[in-house]
Simulated scan of single mutants.
Amino acid sequence: MIIEERQITDQLIQDLIDLSRDWAEEESCYGYRPNKKEDIIGNRIFVAVEEKRVCGYLLGNIHPSKGMKSIMEDGTPYFEVEEIYVIPSRRSQGLGAELFRYVEERLKEDVNIIVLSTATKNWKAIFHFYLDELGMDFWSARLFKRIV
């Protein structure tokens, strides 16, 4: 398994679009739709590759904070994770955690905070992953209820 940051190429964009299509078909997240090229361009892309196949990715970017005063002063650079995805056959094997930790190591000179949001339907499992396994802190929650 190779985990690395990659520059954007047409092939990488297509690989990520294909994976995001698979993810959308899982229906594991509220409102998730497959990526388009413009959703990927401009992000830093980190991939897990096995036998020349991307089997996991994390994409996001560095931003200056604004309005997050409970955790950092305005203007503080932080990394916002837009997506982290691992193919079903490689889940629960530590690959997502390895990918996240690689990103932490790569970014520690540029930022000291990583932020992400999740729309997963399996919030208990994802909270275990982010809080217990990766040591993230809970900051806020946004809940919804459909009225029919």
Results as ranks from 00 to 15, higher is better:
132 D>Q: 12
87 I>N: 01
48 A>Y: 02
20 S>Q: 09
55 C>Q: 09
69 K>V: 13
57 Y>R: 02
66 K>M: 04
108 K>L: 11
23 W>D: 07
129 F>D: 03
68 M>D: 02
65 S>N: 02
114 I>A: 04
99 L>W: 02
126 I>L: 05
139 W>S: 07
111 V>A: 02
85 Y>W: 11
104 E>T: 11
132 D>S: 08
61 N>Y: 14
145 K>I: 10
100 F>H: 08
88 P>N: 12
105 E>I: 14
47 V>Q: 09
124 K>N: 08
138 F>V: 08
27 E>F: 13
94 G>Y: 10
121 K>C: 00
106 R>H: 02
73 E>S: 05
81 V>H: 12
116 L>M: 11
89 S>K: 12
80 E>P: 00
69 K>D: 05
136 M>S: 05
43 N>C: 13
103 V>G: 02
61 N>L: 14
50 E>A: 14
28 S>C: 15
66 K>F: 01
133 E>I: 10
127 F>D: 01
28 S>M: 15
123 W>H: 10
107 L>N: 01
140 S>L: 03
57 Y>S: 02
93 Q>V: 11
32 Y>E: 12
71 I>E: 09
115 V>G: 01
77 P>M: 01
100 F>G: 02
98 E>H: 13
108 K>C: 11
44 R>F: 08
112 N>S: 04
81 V>A: 08
139 W>R: 06
124 K>H: 11
63 H>D: 06
18 D>V: 11
52 K>W: 08
78 Y>V: 06
138 F>R: 09
111 V>T: 10
140 S>Y: 08
61 N>H: 13
55 C>I: 10
87 I>P: 00
103 V>M: 07
36 K>V: 15
83 E>W: 05
100 F>P: 02
94 G>Q: 12
118 T>A: 10
78 Y>I: 06
45 I>W: 05
60 G>F: 01
36 K>N: 13
66 K>N: 05
115 V>Y: 07
19 L>G: 01
58 L>A: 09
100 F>L: 03
44 R>L: 09
